[in-house]
């Protein structure tokens, strides 16, 4: 197994994915959750770019990564806006206290 091989990239992607997932599930701060989501998106983008290079031998994976980056940027903008709206409404950004989904 080479060091700069597809496995390495996939493992890095997997670590980022695991970290992101755990962050998103466990953090109390909404900003923290948001960071987790960004990690997950990054891991997916890395995987796409890796597959693009090593298996598909075309640029289509990179196109997907492009779209992921763009969507992540869009998501960040919306997240910030939502965050500010939530902060104004509840004076708090602790996700544990946001339980209006409970009916």
């Amino acid at each position: 197994m080479e060091i700069i091989g597809i496995q390495s990239y996939l493992v890095i992607g997997q670590i980022l994915f695991a970290a992101g997932l755990l962050t998103a599930v466990s953090k109390r701060n909404i900003i923290g959750i948001f960071m987790g989501i960004e990690l997950i998106l990054n891991s997916a983008a890395i995987n796409f770019a890796a597959f693009s290079k090593f298996t598909a031998v075309s640029l289509e994976g990179q196109v997907f990564s492009m779209f992921i980056i763009v969507l992540a940027a869009a998501e960040a903008a919306i997240a910030l806006a939502l965050l500010l709206a939530i902060y104004k409404r509840y004076d708090d950004i602790n996700a544990d206290n946001l339980t209006t989904l409970k009916l």
């Binding site: 599930v25 996700a95 544990d96 946001l98 339980t99 989904l101």
Partner: peptide, 14 residues
């Protein structure tokens, strides 16, 4: 189970 916290739901899903 119905805590109303999104993360709890995500956890169940996970």
């Amino acid at each position: 189970v119905q805590t109303g916290r999104v993360q709890a739901y995500i956890l169940v899903l996970l």
